[in-house]
Design a protein around this nucleic acid. Structure first.
Length: 496
RNA sequence: GGUCGGAUGGCCGAGUGGCUAGGCUCAGCUCUGCAAAAGCUGCUACAGCGGUUCGAAUCCGCUUCCGACCUCCA
């Protein structure tokens, strides 16, 4: 009896059974990076979370359209007039065109995604490529009376909107509180109320990125692109919208208001938010100076890092926690994950080499246990993508697999159907869903041939009880991160 | 200040009103020429104080501590 997929919806603060609007089609939108510099590991956690969501929904048979944007239009502060955007700042710093900055860091982002074995989205729209759509959306909001224009900028009229619609539900905020605390920003304050937000912002004359609009030259407000692009590719209402916890307010709250304001429809059915990666209990962020880049992690070159860590081990580290919990980074935790990961992959490798054989007495209890594990793992995943529990089941399965390999349990004691189910389930979760199998499995025939030769020489030495030679080979290989494993049916090896 | 979330064994990290999470570490055993790998066994925790209950780490209240958002942020 397979369980139903449940998703924790930030909007209702409850786990809800997932029912797509138009099954088997699913619309999934995740907020992508602003490409003014490189993504750090914390950013990557969110993208990894939604990669798993995308992969799992696909695995379940849904036809998923996964849209993840690239924010390549820098955004000024809400009040406009505030000088340069992040991208412009960077462009001036590096003495490059804004679009060179955008290109550079988009490419770098893609490389990191690739290394982390994240699938490319179905559509990866850019903000600058959808200026027209954004302007059209502003027009619709203006036409409905939920926005006003002042001095070449257009602002969303939150107070007006609240007369007929709730605002602040997603983030649990009420506007009175916002009013009290909102800081007086220096410079102009064209907005009627401090909690209004910009849809279109007049840019300074020297701005590098600006576009013509009915209200003069300017750039789109920073919440607008996601609304315009999700609406274009997924429809005015779609299934799942994801992003980091820190985007809940104001970004996602504003998206809801824009969607309703422009098209009269609540845009998103299920809101998902990934929690932060922390360092010593504090959010990893560039401004705190506690962030590091994926490539620094893989090279071990950062003051916070004791050593280099393999990408898939890091990904597994993330999978061991739930996406809605904060995950605290530490060398100790990462090294523990590294070892656990190696164990899991070892079992995965063993599984591929197992061959079913009926020559054994059937053991109903064993058979049931394995079938239960195969069912449990889906139950766990269906429970709001609980990858932490999933990894626990994978370890249980690993024990079984290794026991088959070692002959501690006769493989024929379970039915062939059960064996095939185990193999298919384990493989699917490692390879297709969590996607933590070694991506660098480029078949290196030379290496395999060399290893066969070396191990056969070592076997000769061992047969002659020339352990000095055999141990010399073993130790030298270990220096190359190649581990030799002497088993009952000969020697195998693996490279870390 | 406002809103929200969290405090779990040596470390990381799930979870449920009563039943072993899992990983790492540590100890012992099996296997092994010796190791490693693998298997088995052991190590029983839920911030504090009250309350509800036959029973709470899990529900409620209070206290302490930590974090996130309220400004760009995944």
């Amino acid at each position: 009896m397979p369980s139903e997929l449940k998703i924790y919806n930030t909007l209702s603060r409850e786990k809800e059974v997932f029912k797509p609007l138009n099954a088997p089609f699913v619309g999934l939108y995740a907020c992508g990076p602003t490409v003014y510099n490189e993504v750090h590991l914390g950013n990557l956690r969110t993208f990894t979370t939604f990669d798993v969501v995308y992969r799992y929904l696909t695995h379940l048979g849904y036809k998923v359209r996964y849209v993840r944007n690239i924010t390549d239009a820098g955004h000024l502060t809400d009040d406009g007039d505030g000088g340069d955007s992040k991208i412009e700042e960077r462009a001036k710093l590096e003495q490059l065109e804004p679009m060179e900055i955008v290109q550079k860091y988009t490419t770098s982002f893609h490389e990191v995604c690739d290394i982390f074995n994240l699938l490319p989205p179905s559509i990866e729209p850019t903000a600058t490529g959808h200026i027209v759509e954004q302007i059209e959306m502003v027009k619709r909001i203006l036409a409905k009376g939920y926005a006003y224009e002042i001095n070449g900028s257009v602002y969303f009229d939150v107070k007006k909107y609240m007369e007929t619609h709730p605002y602040g539900q997603l983030s649990g905020r009420n506007v009175d509180d916002l009013l009290e605390v909102t800081r007086e920003l220096s410079g102009t304050s064209d907005k009627k109320n401090s909690y209004d937000f910009a849809l279109w912002i007049k840019t300074p004359d020297n701005a590098l990125q600006k576009w013509p609009s009915p209200w003069g030259e300017g750039c789109p407000g920073w919440h607008l692109e996601c609304s315009a692009m999700s609406g274009k590719y997924l429809g005015h209402q779609f299934d799942i919208h994801g992003g980091g916890m820190d985007l809940k307010f104001p970004h996602h709250e504003c998206e809801i208001a824009q969607g309703v304001g422009a098209d009269g429809v609540v845009p998103v059915r299920y809101w998902m938010h990934a929690n932060m990666l922390t360092v010593n209990g504090e959010k990893m962020s560039k401004s705190k100076g506690n962030s590091f880049l994926p490539k620094e992690l893989f090279a071990g070159e950062h003051k916070l890092l004791e050593k280099a860590y393999a990408p898939m081990a890091v990904k597994f580290f993330m999978m061991q926690s739930h996406y809605r919990s904060t995950l605290d980074f530490s060398n100790e935790a990462l090294q523990a994950a590294e070892k656990g990961y190696a164990k899991l992959i070892n079992a995965y490798t063993n599984l591929q080499s197992l061959v079913y054989s009926t020559a054994a007495q059937k053991n109903e209890a064993e058979d049931k246990e394995i079938n239960d594990l195969c069912e449990q793992i889906y139950d766990k995943m269906n429970d709001d993508f609980n990858t932490a529990e999933v990894t626990a089941v994978l370890f249980e399965m690993s024990k079984k697999i290794n026991s088959f390999k070692e002959g501690h349990i006769a493989i024929g004691s379970i039915s062939e159907t059960t064996f095939k189910r185990l193999k298919a389930t384990f493989t699917a979760f490692i390879k297709d869903i969590l996607a933590i199998d070694k991506a660098d499995a480029q078949d290196d025939n030379t290496a395999d041939g060399l290893m066969d030769l070396i191990l056969s020489l070592r076997k000769d030495a061992r047969d002659k009880k020339d352990f000095a030679t055999s141990d010399k080979i073993r130790d030298a290989l270990l220096q190359l991160s190649i581990q030799v494993k002497d088993g009952k049916e000969g020697t195998t090896w693996s490279k870390n």
